[in-house]
Design a protein around this nucleic acid. Structure first.
Lengths: 172, 172
DNA sequence: AATCATTGCGCAATAT
DNA sequence: AATATTGCGCAATGAT
C-alpha cells in the first residue's frame, strides 16, 4: 500500500502501449466495438522480441518481460492477472457495500438506543418526582402530624417539586 | 446504469487495441516503465483512418468516431475523459473513506449511548431499591410506630408504589 | 522466483 | 455536446 514513485505523467498521459496481437488464441478482433466503432486493429507489435535475432539484433534475451507479447507465457500471465484484477475489484466493491450496510445497521441501533435512553430517563424522572413528593410529605407531617390516613397514600401528595429533570439534560 | 450487452469476450479477452501515437503533444514515451521494463513501443496505428481512402476504401467519413485517433478532436476528448475519470474515481474513493469514517463515528456514539443506558439503569435500580426499603420501613412503622430515628432523613418515605420495575426487563 | 493482490491509468461504452 | 460512471485490460508494485 504505497506508491512511492509513480510515473505521474502530468498531462501528457502515459503512452497506452498495447497491441492487439494474440490472434493466436481466438478471433475476437472484429467484435470489440459493439457501439459502432470500427476500430481497425491492424497492428503488429513491430516485435521487440529478442529471441533468435532476425536481422542484426543481438540474441540477448530480455530478463523481465520474458515473453514479448504473443508468447503463450505472456498471454497466460495476462489472463491470470486480469482474473485477479476482476476478483480484487469485486471484493473492493463488496466491501464498500458492506460498509454502507454497516452504517445503516449502526444507525438503526443508535435509534433504538436513544429511544431506550429516553424511556429510562423518563422513568427516572418519575421516580425522582415521587421521592421529592414524599420528602415534602414527610416535612408536612413533621409540622402537622395529623392527617395520616387517606385510603391509599394519595392524599397529601402535591408540591411542585423542582426535580432535577434530566430527561434532556444528559451530560454527554 | 445498465450494461445491456457488454462485449464480454469470455476468455479471449477484448483486444486491447491502443497505440502509442500522439507523440504530437509531448514526449513521455521513454518514461513509461519506471520499473525496469524496456517496452519497445515502436508501433504505428497502421491507420485504419477512413478519410481519403488509401487503398480502395470509400472516402465516407464515419459518423461517430468523428476523429480517427490522431485527430486533435479525438485527443482532446480523450484527455478530458481521462480527467473526468480520475475525478470520478477520486470521488468514489473519498466516498468510501467517508463511509468508513461514518462507521467509526457511529460505533463510538453507540458506545456512548450504551454507557449512558448502563448508567441510567443503575440509577433506576438504586432508586427502586430505596423505594423498597422505605416500603419496608413503612410496614415496620405501621406495626410499631415507635422507632422513628433512622440516622438520616430517610424515615417517612413509604408507599410502595407499584412502579413499573424495568431494571432488567427492558423490552428490546 | 513465481504467483496472486492492489492500484493507477487510459480506452470505450454508457449514463446523465 | 459535455461530463460522469463503469467495465476492462495493461503494467507496476506490493505481498506471499
Amino acid at each position: 500500500m504505497s506508491r512511492p514513485a509513480q510515473p505521474k505523467t502530468t498531462t501528457p498521459d502515459h503512452i497506452g502501449v498495447s497491441v492487439i496481437q494474440s490472434q493466436t488464441h481466438a478471433a475476437a478482433i472484429a467484435g470489440v466495438a459493439p457501439g459502432g466503432l470500427q476500430q481497425v486493429p491492424q497492428l503488429v507489435p513491430a516485435n521487440a522480441n529478442p529471441s533468435a535475432g532476425a536481422g542484426g539484433g543481438k540474441a540477448a534475451k530480455m530478463k523481465k518481460p520474458s515473453a514479448d507479447k504473443e508468447s503463450d507465457e505472456y498471454r497466460q500471465r495476462r489472463e491470470r492477472n486480469n482474473l485477479a484484477v476482476k476478483k480484487s475489484r469485486m471484493r473492493s466493491k463488496q466491501k464498500a457495500m458492506d460498509t454502507q450496510q454497516r452504517v445503516n445497521e449502526l444507525k438503526e441501533e443508535n435509534e433504538r438506543l436513544e429511544a431506550k435512553i429516553k424511556l429510562l430517563s423518563k422513568e427516572l424522572s418519575v421516580l425522582k418526582d415521587l421521592f421529592l413528593e414524599h420528602a415534602h410529605n414527610l416535612a408536612d407531617n413533621v409540622h402537622a402530624p395529623a392527617a395520616a390516613g387517606g385510603e391509599g397514600a394519595n392524599p397529601a401528595l402535591n408540591n411542585n417539586n423542582n426535580n432535577n429533570n434530566n430527561t434532556s439534560a444528559n451530560g454527554q
